[in-house]
Design a protein around this nucleic acid. Structure first.
Length: 278
DNA sequence: CTTAGGG
DNA sequence: CCCTAAG
């Protein structure tokens, strides 16, 4: 099956270039692990970095840069930047990464039979972590359980199981998951520090206008969510963050922008990419 | 497991 | 992106 292929964002490319400058070519693992770049490249593997660098090198060496439509938004200002809360110190070309889905965008949590299309198959880490955060199995989950869980809530391709295995393997290699016996458990990686997420991504998200709380309740919810996220700064915590946010949000009878915000984070954090709203 | 190169 | 060969 053809792979969806996750397009590299400007942030990722920049992080990669900076990483090569700092560690040198060939030190892909170091770059990927570096706390400075990890928040942008945590979804990419060292091999991915290598491949991307190869592509970037050949691309720049060409006389005719076929940029074409691959120049998404050089100066696309987000229409609804309601709260220019914080400005990015580093003049990032961040630019509205993705339009926030204002409508009732269904998070890939509940089922969605509406999508008759098979192209929406987002076999991403998000689903995997969703399983962990939902099942709350302290003993870990075996491949079959995870596969079963995902199959129940999402439509999966035929080669799903194989992809899942690959995914799990990679996550273990990246220290995101821990394999004990036949089960996988979320790994608490303390070596990576505890600042990555809030530092970079939150800043960007705020700047992008994703964060726009005006109510103290919302602010509290977001704070709580990030408290969790800050604890581990890994993909899976986003799921936890959502749950926390959801809980507080429910108590406050407010479930609009806050939740939407959490969903966006979940997407970004877990997938590491922006899903353009077609 | 990490790199490098070909597919 | 995936796979395979080397280190």
């Amino acid at each position: 099956m053809g792979n969806p292929k996750q397009k590299w964002t400007s942030e990722e490319e920049e992080a990669l270039r900076a990483g090569v400058a700092k560690h040198g070519t060939g030190k892909w693992k170091d770059i990927q692990r570096d706390p400075e770049f990890n928040p942008f490249l945590f979804t990419r593997s060292n091999i991915d970095l290598k491949d991307k660098w190869r592509n970037m090198s050949v691309a720049s060496g060409q006389g005719g840069p076929r940029e074409k439509s691959r120049t998404p938004k050089p100066k696309a200002a987000n229409p609804d930047a309601l709260a220019p809360a914080a400005q990015l110190a580093t003049a990032q070309p961040l630019t509205a990464a993705a339009p926030v889905a204002r409508d009732a965008a269904a998070i890939p949590t509940v089922d969605d039979s509406s999508k008759g299309d098979a192209k929406n198959t987002l076999m991403s880490n998000a689903m995997i972590f969703e399983a962990f955060s939902t099942l709350k199995e302290q003993n870990g989950l075996d491949t079959n359980t995870i596969a079963n869980f995902i199959e129940q809530r999402h439509e999966v391709p035929q080669n799903f199981r194989r992809i899942l295995s690959t995914r799990l393997r990679r996550l273990v290699q990246q220290d995101k998951l821990e394999k004990v016996q036949n089960c996988f458990k979320i790994k608490s990686d303390a070596s990576s520090g505890t600042k990555t997420f809030t530092d970079s991504q939150l800043g960007k998200l705020q700047n992008a206008g994703y964060v726009k709380y005006n109510d103290p309740v919302e602010e509290a919810a977001v704070a709580a969510a990030f408290k969790v996220a800050d604890a581990e700064n890994r993909s899976f915590v986003a799921a936890e963050a959502i749950k926390e946010a959801e809980r507080i949000s429910k108590l406050a009878e407010d479930t609009d922008s806050m939740l939407q915000f959490a969903k966006e984070i979940f997407e970004k954090c877990s997938q590491g990419e922006v899903v353009p709203i077609a």
